[in-house]
Amino acid sequence: MPVFALLIISKAGSLIYHRTFPTSSSTTGSQPATGTLGLPGTTSLTTNDYLVLAGTFHGVHAITKSLTPRVPAYSASSEDSPSVNGATIKTPAFRYPNPELPVTGIESLESSFFKLTVFQTLTGTKFLLFTDPSMPNTDGLIRGIYDRYADHVCKNPFWHVDNPIRLEGWDRALSQFLFRR
C-alpha cells in the first residue's frame, strides 16, 4: 500500500484528523503496524508531534502562498488604462501568471522517501496526503478523499465545523476507498 498517511488541517490551522496507514514493507510482521509518513524515523510520532507538524505546515503554507511568483504587468496597457472621473486606475505593476486562478500555496512536495500532495478546499480546509513517490495520480486520489469527506463528514449532524473528526462511517469509507483501489 503506497499511501502512508492522511492529515486534515482546519482553516484555523489545527489538526482535525490524522491517520496513518500500515505499510506492508515497513512492518515485518512481528512489530505492530504503526504507520509512518514515509520518512525514516517517523514511526514513533506521537499525536502531539502531529499537532506540531500540522501547525508548522499551516504557517509554511501561508508563507508559500505569498511567495507565489508574479510576472511584470504588461506595460503598454498602462497608457490606455481606463479612467473613471478623470483619475486613472492604477494597475498593479505585477500580476500572477494566471489571474483567473486563486493563489494557492504548496501543492506538492517530493523527496526520495515520500510525496506530499496538498489540496485546499474553497473554505480553507487542507488535505495532506503522504504517498510513495512512485504513486501516480495523487490528485485524483485526494479528490476522491475529498468526496468522501464531503459525504461522510460534512453531512453528519454529529460533527461540527473545525472540530476533530471521530466518525466511524468516515473511517470506513476512507479505508474502503483507499484499499479497494
Binding site: 459525504d151 461522510h152 453531512k155 453528519n156 449532524p157 454529529f158 466518525l167 462511517g169 468516515w170
Partner: peptide, 9 residues
C-alpha cells in the same frame, strides 16, 4: 448512509 453516531449515543 452518511451519518455515524458518536460513541456515547
Amino acid at each position: 448512509t452518511y451519518i455515524s453516531v458518536p460513541k456515547e449515543m
